[in-house]
Design a binder for these strands. Structure first.
Lengths: 101, 101
DNA sequence: TAAAGTAGTTACCTTTGCGTAACTATCAAA
DNA sequence: TTTGATAGTTACGCAAAGGTAACTACTTTA
């Protein structure tokens, strides 16, 4: 478990994996699909996820350049887990109580 | 997903939940069961998990004092997810290659 | 010649996560 | 009176995570 968390224990990496659950995506698409993430964190997270064998980076030598990110087998194995996590929130989330004035 | 990660997106919180999957535990037990965690992070993580409705803190007015932590329903709903995460690592973990000298 | 599109990088800064070590409070037992 | 046990807290500091804004490189199109 400590090793799993060494790979996934950040705010954004599971969200990136979840976003790639049903499609490849380009850098710019990920940036647009994931609200509030900064390009810098996206860059470094993608790099680390690639190092850990979760995603694959495919570069097309075109103009303008194109890069696609997709889950590896190891990454795909996380899809059901990420989906359950999303579902868990839908089931148990409660609006924070409005502030009394 | 962003909300799930707002609650769980740290290195230690999922490990604490995983440790409580099959038993209540006292503060000192958690400290002993979870290798390498510091008491300080344990304290603050437990506090935040309680605020988020994941765990329940039960204080016994005894001497010496005793405090037990257990998962709430919302927390118990995470058990299968945490177990799958642990299993995922067992399946896909590879020893890092030994350094060549 | 300038703008537009893609995929980043770089510099700088703030916040959060986490660690270590020492300290507190309470009471019972030695 | 000192020790031991439980469950923390406090002070201090480092490193990682994360944010913003400006900049780069390449080529096509206007």
């Amino acid at each position: 478990m400590q090793r799993s968390m060494g790979i996934l224990g950040t705010r954004w990496k599971p969200i990136i994996i979840y976003t790639l659950r049903d499609r490849k995506a380009r850098f710019g698409q990920l940036d647009a699909l994931i609200e509030n993430i900064s390009r810098k964190v996206l860059t470094s997270s993608l790099k680390e996820l690639e190092e850990d064998g979760i995603i694959l980076r495919e570069e097309f030598k075109e103009l303008p350049p194109r890069v696609e990110y997709a889950l590896t087998e190891k990454g795909k194995a996380l899809i059901p887990i990420m989906c359950q996590l999303a579902k868990w929130n839908e089931e148990y989330y409660e609006e924070p109580a409005p502030l009394e004035l």
